[in-house]
């Protein structure tokens, strides 16, 4: 049954890829006195409303979008999740 699914895509820098933004935030937190922050990775969250036959289909089509446009698989990982409700 086709309906609109709310889908979250979380895009983060791939493991091993330099993340200047995350690193700068980590150092700034240290300067503010937050000790023990070992790593910060800065990514982005993209929220889509996708029409599909089921949650699996919504995920599958969103993953295609990620490969093509939303993420750059050369430097970024992404996780696709259907939100409840």
């Amino acid at each position: 049954m086709s309906r609109v699914w709310s889908v979250d895509v979380r895009v983060t820098p791939r493991e091993g890829i330099l993340d200047p933004a995350g690193e700068t935030i980590r150092r700034a937190l240290g300067n503010l006195g937050y000790e023990g922050v070992h790593s910060v990775r800065a990514g982005r969250l993209i929220r889509l409303e996708v029409e599909a036959d089921g949650p699996e289909a919504a995920v599958a089509s969103t993953e295609k979008m990620c490969e093509q446009l939303i993420a750059n698989p050369i430097i970024e990982d992404y996780v696709v999740r259907v939100r409840e409700g």
Binding site: P20, A21, T24, I25, A28, N31, L32
Partner: peptide
């Protein structure tokens, strides 16, 4: 400042 990472001006402010 600070590469404008996070938000422009957000880190410099501290």
């Amino acid at each position: 400042s600070y590469g404008d990472y996070l938000r422009a001006g957000a880190i410099a402010r501290f």
